[in-house]
């Protein structure tokens, strides 16, 4: 890790937390990405779909506008279709079953000392760690 990585991590983290604070204090909503997306596509969030759609529009468009400032951004995402499909399905099922992901359970849950948020975070980080251990170091597929 380059030394400036953690500084940018901290700055970006403060921005993410600021976004969650704004969404909570102005809109009265918990900023959970999987819940906002999931409620929009499975129909359970029909009552406030415009708010969800506006949030997602900002989430997609603003980074797209900022990328040119960096010249280019390499996200180093795999192009292995099977891995992408498997991961997408796991993330989709898992986050909706657990009612939250890194933003909802992680950022918003831990900050209010929610037992569910903290437990979810422990389990998804542990599962992610085991997955990287097996897929990278034992099987060599990632």
């Amino acid at each position: 890790m380059l030394e400036q990585d953690w500084i940018w991590g901290l700055i970006g983290g403060l921005m993410i937390g600021g976004a969650g604070a704004l969404f909570l204090l102005m809109n009265g909503r918990i900023m959970g990405a999987s819940g906002i997306i999931g409620g929009l596509v499975d129909g359970s969030g029909r009552a406030n779909w415009t708010e969800r759609a506006a949030f997602l529009a900002g989430l997609v468009i603003v980074p797209a506008l900022l990328v040119p400032l960096y010249g280019s951004v390499d996200t180093r995402l795999t192009d292995n279709v099977w891995l992408l499909v498997a991961a997408g399905l796991l993330v989709g099922f898992g986050t909706r079953l657990a009612n939250g992901c890194t933003s909802g359970h992680g950022v918003c849950g831990i900050s209010r000392l929610s037992l569910r948020g903290m437990a979810a975070t422990v389990f998804y980080i542990a599962a992610g760690g085991v997955t990287v251990l097996i897929a990278r170091h034992l099987l060599g597929v990632i």
Partner: peptide, 9 residues
């Protein structure tokens, strides 16, 4: 399940 998918990609 989520963590496994997160780790994969």
């Amino acid at each position: 399940l989520f963590g496994a998918g997160w780790g994969l990609v």
